[in-house]
Amino acid sequence: MSAVDSILSMLKDPNTQWILLGCMLLGLCSGVIGCFAYLRKQSLMGDTLAHAALPGICIAFMLTGIKSILLFLIGAGIAGLVATLGIGFITRNSRIKPDAAMGIVLSGFFGLGIVLLTQIQHGDYGNQSGLDKFLFGQAASMIGSDVTTMLIVCSVIIAACTLLFKEFKLLSFDPGFARGIGYPVVLLEQLMMFFIVVSVVVGIQAVGVVLVAALLITPAVSARYWTDRLGAMVMLSGLFGALSGVVGTWLSSTTASLPTGPLSVLASTLLFLFSLLLGPRRGLLAKQLTRIRAKRQLEQHTAQQPVQELAKEGGRSL
């Protein structure tokens, strides 16, 4: 089957349509909000929030017995809040650095999540099916209502990032100055954190707790290689995310046994490698070329100039 045929057949299948749309939206909004997280040096925060979300989701399910994204969102949000507060508490009251604190909190919450998940699977919760999928995600289980939720979440995040672009930009570049001109920095930070939690929670179903952070970070890092403007970077990152979602869905629909979420993450990793290598100016290739060119120029310069003058010049620059 050729690529075109397989894409056409994918677009015809209504079930795949939902998955395609869902993964695309997920990639898009994670890519957009991920830019700000990355620029604020909070790449690891996405990972922490994702892992912290697992016990939150489990507890929400155990308390209510209902599988609903909204309830999971509340559970994950509270767990994320507790996790971030925990990290803050540890770094403030000990000499432990933030990265170590994040590592501790992340794995602690994840461990608790796994224990609760096993509990749920062995217990007699009627509606237990599917919660275990949250570990590695199962995009194929997405249905119309999930995609509607994603559409809403995605629209809200993109609208907020568009409206608050100038505020988020200043917050990411120079929070001290932002506070100095009277921005409610704490409120804006919490809002941004909230968006990250939301995109993590809607992403968990498709990609799983372990991989969902990749959707936040990888497109943003890749986009940075292609532009020096924040606006372009955010758009490009959203595009890379959406593209990864589409490619993941397409590959998974051609080979039935491969999971969509991890394929999307792999696609986004490939995009990153491509950017790392070929990005203009920042890419490895461009850097190497600049170095070779500079070396050649220096050699020409050295060959042309008499030794005496060179010595004089060297002396002057010292």
Binding site: L39, L170, F173, D174, L230
Partner: peptide, 29 residues
């Protein structure tokens, strides 16, 4: 009424923006 020049090291200068853009941030308030 207040203007502020933070320490230069307080920000990451690898941020994707240009000089004019940074100066315009002074108008955000």
């Amino acid at each position: 009424l207040i203007g502020y020049v933070p320490q230069r090291e307080s920000v990451d200068w690898d941020f994707p923006t240009n000089a004019l853009d940074v100066v315009m941030m002074g108008r955000y308030g």
